[in-house]
Simulated assay, not measured.
Amino acid sequence: MDPLRSKKTNGGTARRPTVEAYKNEHGDAASARQQGHQTQEVSLVEADEHVSTALGLPPGTTVYERARVMTRDGVPTHTVTSYYRVEDVEDTSLVDPAPGIAGPGGGFRVLTDRGLDPHEITEDLNARMPTADETLLLELPPGEPVVEVRHTTRTAEGQVIEYARGVHAASRFMWSYTFAIPD
């Protein structure tokens, strides 16, 4: 086994988020609170081309990879794999392999506490058909597309502090964005 792919493990207590879900795809129906859960696997890995470019690092640089599968009421909804520079998150709850969120305020609170205040996010969305592995992992019915989201978080100074890739079951999500109109 590649030593950089070795997983951090411990017997930590799971943290369970609650999510607000809507009864239709438009988000205008009554909402319901549902129990959410996420698995978590944390590894030190060599940054591939996309990760190294996003984080501004040479290819092959060791980074933390935090891979999660999110479920809502026991149904898998999406995966998210985040990447961080080692020096930005070492010894924080972001690299704690206990299932669940990174703690009160989530990962952005952890980064803020390290002096890396998230200021700007860029998201690139791509609808596509899932791979065979994604179909199994997300328990997708035949013909269900996914939406891949590539997410880059920066400080006000422009430093990238997180790069993430997520795969979402298309029928289980609706995205809504609000933008200020420039002068």
Rank of each mutant, 00 (worst) to 15 (best):
R5Y: 11
I121Y: 09
H26S: 14
D133K: 12
G105V: 07
P97D: 05
E20C: 12
T131N: 11
A180P: 06
L137S: 02
I121S: 13
D2N: 14
Q34R: 14
S31T: 10
G115A: 03
T122M: 10
A180Q: 13
A170L: 09
I121W: 07
G158E: 06
Q35R: 12
H168D: 05
D48M: 04
P104A: 09
T178V: 14
T112A: 15
A30N: 09
R16V: 09
H151M: 10
Y163E: 02
A164F: 00
T9K: 15
P142H: 08
G36M: 04
V110E: 03
T39W: 03
I101Q: 09
Y177I: 02
L44S: 10
E139W: 06
E65Y: 01
R114Q: 14
G11Y: 08
G60V: 03
A164N: 01
G107R: 00
A98T: 00
L138M: 00
L111Q: 01
K8G: 07
R128V: 02
E134A: 05
T153C: 11
L55Q: 03
D28N: 15
E25W: 11
G103T: 05
D88K: 03
V149R: 15
R85P: 03
Q159L: 15
T79G: 05
W175E: 12
L94I: 09
S171C: 09
T9R: 12
A29S: 13
K8R: 15
Y163V: 05
V45T: 01
A47H: 03
P58H: 08
R15I: 14
T178G: 13
T9G: 11
E123N: 13
T71L: 08
Q159H: 12
G100N: 02
H151Q: 13
T53A: 15
V160D: 04
P141V: 04
Q38A: 03
I181T: 13
R33K: 14
T62Y: 07
A102S: 14
A32G: 09
E139G: 13
G56W: 01
S6N: 14
G158S: 06
Y177G: 02
Y177C: 00
S43T: 09
D113N: 11
V160R: 01
H119P: 03
H78C: 08
V69P: 01
Y64D: 00
G107S: 07
N126C: 11
S6L: 12
R33Y: 07
Y177K: 08
P145F: 03
T81I: 06
E20A: 14
E25K: 15
